[in-house]
């Protein structure tokens, strides 16, 4: 290599480092450093001036607290119900949207996606009034037509979680639908012709052609929704504050309360790390299980 070329290469390297300087320092300061301190803090009792080492006691007290298990159970219930219903519903709706013209398709895509654009804070207000416990409340007056008695939707531990789940399913449909439609439109029509020649009905086509072919999309949606479900915090915080009787306290809210209500930073960090581990295990498992029979 001659000198001029070498100099040019060196210049390129300098530019490359300059280009990644800002993102890299942002990650190091605001992600990597906090992760490391999070691990350290989880073994400490945090005090503004010099924290005290307490060994595993934050973890021990977490494992001893029944609220931790309750929060995990709530998170699991919320996720296990929300994710499959959400995915199945959006799959069906996408199949229904697909035969229409482009313009009509975009209209429906937009209609289902709109709730995802409104801020969570704004939507939580509206849903709170829909779930109003008084007989004049919207959902209560609607259900009276069908002979359902008055419910204290968010105030009773029986219905609070279900109320949050309904809200989450309808709010999250749009995103899944748009992704599914893109996947459906990417399917080569010759598959349908072949299935047709073999005499398959519409439902058979959906089951044996479409469903396997959009499987990678389904896996993607399932994994991302499970991760989001495990981390969900905002809806429960704004709608119920975790009540009644901690029936809607999920892991995200539990950690938030530990940290910013009771100022137990160490325990909050320990719980957050445990949650991260659970999420990681889940994501890997889910990926392994579903990757086995994905046909690309």
């Amino acid at each position: 290599m001659n000198k001029a070329k070498k100099k040019k290469m060196k210049k390129e390297v300098v530019w490359a480092y300059l280009f990644i300087l800002v993102p890299l320092s942002t990650f190091i300061i605001f992600t990597i450093y906090p992760v490391i301190t999070s691990v350290i803090t989880s073994f400490q009792k945090y005090r503004p001036l010099g924290s005290e080492w307490v060994g595993f006691s934050n973890y021990v007290s977490t494992f001893k607290s029944s609220l931790f298990y309750k929060a995990l159970k709530n998170t699991a219930v919320y996720t296990v119900i929300t994710v499959p219903i959400g995915i199945l519903m959006s799959f069906i709706v996408s199949i229904m949207i697909v035969p229409f013209r482009k313009g009509i398709q975009s209209f429906f895509k937009g209609a289902f996606y709109l709730p995802a654009i409104a801020s969570g804070v704004a939507l939580s207000f509206v849903w709170k009034w829909i779930y109003d416990p008084l007989p004049s409340g919207l959902l209560n007056s609607l259900l009276r037509f069908f002979g359902v008695s008055n419910q204290n939707w968010l105030g009773s531990s029986k219905t609070a979680m279900a109320s949050l789940i309904i809200m989450a399913v309808f709010g999250g449909l749009g995103q899944n639908i748009i992704i599914y439609i893109a996947a459906l439109l990417g399917i080569d029509p010759t598959y349908y012709e072949a299935a047709e020649i073999d005499g398959s009905t519409f439902l058979q086509k959906v089951r044996y052609v479409v469903w396997p072919l959009v499987k990678p999309t389904t896996v993607f949606l399932a994994i991302t929704s499970v991760i989001n479900g495990f981390q969900s915090f905002q809806t429960a915080y704004l709608m119920t504050g975790g009540g009644p009787d901690n029936a809607t306290t999920m892991a995200g809210l539990l950690i938030f309360n530990r940290a910013f209500k009771y100022f137990e930073y160490g325990e909050a960090c320990a719980q957050a790390l445990l949650l991260a581990m659970i999420i990681a295990v889940f994501a890997i498992l889910q990926f392994k299980v579903s990757a086995n029979d994905v046909e690309y």
Binding site: F30, P34, Q231, A280
Partner: peptide, 21 residues
């Protein structure tokens, strides 16, 4: 690689130290 790892960390892990920082 560092970037990809940072992308996968749930925000709960960083929220408390980030707040303190």
């Amino acid at each position: 690689f560092l970037l990809l790892v940072a992308m996968m960390i749930p925000y709960q892990v960083t929220q408390v130290p980030l707040y303190i920082l």
